[in-house]
Nucleic acid binder design. Sequence first.
DNA 1: GCTTGATCGAACCGGTCGTTACCATCAGGA
DNA 2: TCCTGATGGTAACGACCGGTTCGATCAAGC
Lengths: 204, 204
Amino acid sequence: MGPIGTICLMPVAKGTSLDPDRTRAAMLEAATVVFYERGLDGVGIAELCSSVGASKETLYRHFGSKDGLIAAVLQARSDRNNAWLRRAAATGGDDPAAQLTAVFGVLGEWFDQPDYRGCALVNAATQRHFEPAHSMVVQHLDGYRALLTQIAAAAGVADPDRVGGQLLMLLQGATVMADHLALGRAAADDALAAALPLLTSGTD
Amino acid sequence: MGPIGTICLMPVAKGTSLDPDRTRAAMLEAATVVFYERGLDGVGIAELCSSVGASKETLYRHFGSKDGLIAAVLQARSDRNNAWLRRAAATGGDDPAAQLTAVFGVLGEWFDQPDYRGCALVNAATQRHFEPAHSMVVQHLDGYRALLTQIAAAAGVADPDRVGGQLLMLLQGATVMADHLALGRAAADDALAAALPLLTSGTD
DNA sequence: GCTTGATCGAACCGGTCGTTACCATCAGGA
DNA sequence: TCCTGATGGTAACGACCGGTTCGATCAAGC
């Protein structure tokens, strides 16, 4: 397994700074990719720094510690993924079924990407090692659940909270199975097929 | 975080052997508990050995390496969990819905246990570090899926393979959510409620 | 009684890791 | 022009870990 590659930004010389926090952004992006691909313990600080052409001291000035870097990476990923799903749901207009279909549609696209490795937040919390991961994954999943509950409520189901949780179960189950069983978008399609009836079963 | 505690068996003196492979069983049980609780990298060989009162040499004679020990632990857990679900399904008699209810019933009991930490196989594959974990989790999930597909087929659904996969999604999603969101048996109940309609929707 | 083999305890090795410190360097502002 | 500050590079530190080896010890079988 070679070095990280392809992420190197910041072709600056010894003492240049080039941008106030462009360095921080480059580190965050490189860490996001490599932590997701190889796990939080699969890459060390030294390799991470050398891959972006930065020094350890710079990393520690920006993030304080490896855990601080991990927390920043996870927060960014959580925000981005939640925004993805919400933007997708918005394309469904006012139809809850269309919203749900759109959500599982982008999910399927994600599953098909060759570097798909499951949910970064859940993975990080699983390979726990530091505490913030737990509260971050809770916040992350609650963000998903809020969106799904909102869709369920718009569909007029009897118990939106419960249906929202069930939809999140299907989403997470598909995420896990697409990862370990390499199912690709088929996992999202099957999950959607199981999810759609939930929107209409308990309606009033 | 103190030592492992409470697992210590084998109160044997220096050169006694007490049992041919009782030592092996004790190591396997201690490793099963602590690997599940603290992660594969959360405990070292030295602590594991001292917790059961064994020496490193004995561990390496029995398992060859830490990865060998992990593989043995995961295989035992996979076999045991699959047997659990199959035994539960058997209590449902010939009624597929009753079988499914029984399966999610034992799942709920599991979720309620205070030391519940999700699926050990999936967790191990997530915090990858050695290759066998991947094929083992595939085999593990396929065992689950075979059972669920069989139930779906008995219910007479149009596409048992597809429904089996959807049921496995609900099972895995509930497993993940019960872990990180500490939902307990409610997760299994909600998953069952979403699963039962799948048995009757596409029947012929 | 002696041999065989399993075991413990301890030391040891090579490696990796996160973190800190120091230094030379260079850009930009006073 | 000089100072300030962010930077890259290097080295070192302390801790831990997986794995190996060795000697002492004791039970069991011939």
